[in-house]
């Protein structure tokens, strides 16, 4: 399974999204606002998700906006962090 698809399944499960499957989420679809419709509490859950599943911390708020923009940006960030380790 690609990292993008793995992330989609995790997001659906951990954020308890309803009536949506992994294949319904486009890699470049915005996660917040008009896109998937996530909100600020979901953002906190996403930070926890990254730490729990990938041991990656996100502390820079400005950077976080870019990282959490879409599934693709999230996957790219995880790959970049894993390469640095």
């Amino acid at each position: 399974m690609s990292l993008e698809n793995e992330l989609k399944s995790l997001i659906i499960a951990e954020l308890k999204l309803v009536d949506i499957k992994a294949e319904d989420i486009n890699d470049d679809q915005p996660l917040f606002g008009e896109g998937l419709g996530l909100d600020s509490l979901d953002a906190v859950e996403l930070v926890v998700l990254l730490q729990r599943h990938y041991k990656i911390e996100t502390k820079d708020l400005e950077q976080s906006k870019e990282v959490f923009a879409s599934v693709r940006s999230l996957a790219n960030y995880i790959r970049a962090q894993q390469d640095r380790k």
């Binding site: 926890v48 730490q51 729990r52």
Partner: peptide
Amino acid sequence: DHGDKLASPT
């Protein structure tokens, strides 16, 4: 399981 930093906020 995950410690106080990673407990679920929801």
